[in-house]
Structures are given as structure tokens and as C-alpha cells.
Design a protein around this nucleic acid. Structure first.
Lengths: 139, 139
DNA sequence: ATTTGTGCAAATCGTTTGCATCTGA
DNA sequence: TCAGATGCAAACGATTTGCACAAAT
């Protein structure tokens, strides 16, 4: 067993998930090439291309389990598909409207100020900023 | 014909939409009681309760036409349903997670600073801030 | 041996579409 | 009159679910 595989096993165990063949394969696709944004469908295609056999149902299960266990973060930019971000840190997004694509914003300095406090008895889960962008119209 | 109806006709004409029975009824539901957030389904139910006969297809058509013509604004807070806001001005939202409910944030002072500029050749359509909130866990 | 995960196909949910019919200008 | 609007039911795309079978501890 390679080093890489040991790491993946670790990651999965830490997330209290059994390191099954499918989960290891998906974890590798997701976490071994920097920050990524996937949808169930794109990950499914990618898995197929990589020769990994997984069902779409398992892709959905896995994405949700990874999200619940802090390995992924879900983002809603568009009301039709859910995207998952491998960067779970505090940061915001660009959303390219015509291309249905999510991009991380180089973070560390975006600041949201003067937020009104939430209604009585409510607490803040997260503050999400989405900057919708499109190809510049020629003038 | 009442004053109110004349106003609605005006609004619709300005939006280059024929003031049909359905559109007038929906416009009245939407615009005669302050700022509101509806989904196709909630508006549909509301219309039924008000004794207005409209099909769900027409609800969807109308919501989209109103949006394209600046009478409504679409918001994506949750990746499953689309919500429409009768407040088309520049403002942001609270989203109550457990209740699937959108609330306007009292605006005028929320500031987003230090936004990185969009990638070359892209322009900003909008900057949307969503603060996700939930009932405070008792301690 | 027991618990947990997987795959398939059917089911669900929000939304869209095609098309025949109706309505407002 | 006739472009534009409406309603219905069927079609859709993303996601979920039920359940029998397989794999991990």
C-alpha cells in the first residue's frame, strides 16, 4: 500500500467513514489536485474516465457524507445544481453565469462590514459572498 | 375599475406585458403588501387561496417575465428552489436554514470591501451576500 | 457475524416544454 | 384579426429512496 493510500485511509477514518474502494477513489480524485469545485455529475464523469466504477447514487452519498464530516463544503450559487468545494476554509466565490462555473476568490482580505445582527434567538452559520460575473460585453 | 387596478395595469404595461387577468391577479398578490419573498409553489398556493385560477405553468412564466422586466429579483440561497424578491433594490439576505425562509437585510449599510477584481475580460453582474442563520442552540 | 456501504431502478421534486385553445389590443 | 397568453399533461434534470447484495470490521 502506497503512502498516498495510507493518507486517504487516514482522512476517511478521521471523518468516521469506512475506507471503501469507492470512497478512496473519490477522495483521491477530489483531494489530490488542489482546490476543486465539482458537481455530482462532473465527479461521476471524472470517475468514469479514471476507470473507477461507482454508481451515481454512491457519488451523491459520498459527497454528502464528505460534506457532513467537514471534508467538503457545499455551495449554492445557482438554483439547480449543487456544487462542492474541496476548500473548506473561510473564503468566497466568483460564479461565471454563462459557464456555470465556480471559482474561489483569493481570500484573506474580503471583508463584509456592518452586517445587521440576526433576529433575536438566531445565530449565524455562515456568511457567503457570491460575485456573479460574465464575459465583458464588447463596446 | 378601481384605482388599484389602474396602477397594476400601468405597472404591467411599463414592463411591456399585457395586463391579463392572471398577471394582474399575481401582481396584486405580489406588490400590494410590502416586500415579499415567494417561490413558485408558495405563490401558487396563495393564488388558489385567494380564489384566483392560474396554472402552475403560468406562475412560472409570470415570475420569469416579471424578473426579466425588473419587477422582481431572483435569489439563489438554496440549491433546490428559486425564490423571488419583490424588493429589486440593492440589498442582501438572511436565509433561515431550517425554515427555508428568506429575509431582507435592512440595507443601506452592509459593505463588502476588498473584493478582488474579476478575471481578465469578465465583468461583475452582482454581488450577493447571504447570511445563513438558524435557531440558536440552547447552552 | 454484524454493521455499513453499494448499485440499481423506481420514485420524487422543482421546473420546463409542446401544443391546442383562448384572450386582449 | 391575430400576436401573445394560458393550461394541461408530458418531458426533464437533479437528486433521493428502497431494497437486495456485497464488503469492511
Amino acid at each position: 500500500m502506497t503512502e498516498k493510500h495510507k493518507d486517504l485511509d487516514q482522512t476517511l477514518r478521521q471523518a468516521k467513514l469506512r475506507p471503501t474502494r469507492q470512497r478512496k477513489a473519490l477522495a483521491e480524485l477530489l483531494f489530490s489536485k488542489g482546490d476543486r469545485h465539482v458537481s455530482a455529475e462532473t465527479l461521476f464523469d471524472e470517475a468514469r474516465e479514471a476507470g473507477v466504477t461507482v454508481s451515481l447514487a454512491t457519488i451523491y452519498n459520498t459527497l454528502h457524507q464528505f460534506t457532513e464530516n467537514g471534508l467538503l463544503r457545499a455551495i449554492s450559487v445557482d438554483s439547480s445544481k449543487t456544487y462542492f468545494d474541496t476548500n473548506t476554509g473561510n473564503h468566497h466565490h466568483f460564479y461565471i453565469e454563462d459557464r456555470n462555473e465556480v471559482m474561489d476568490m483569493p481570500d484573506g482580505f474580503v471583508k463584509v462590514e456592518n452586517l445587521p445582527s440576526p433576529p433575536e434567538g438566531m445565530e449565524v452559520c455562515s456568511v457567503d459572498v457570491v460575485v456573479r460575473i460574465r464575459e465583458q460585453k464588447r463596446r
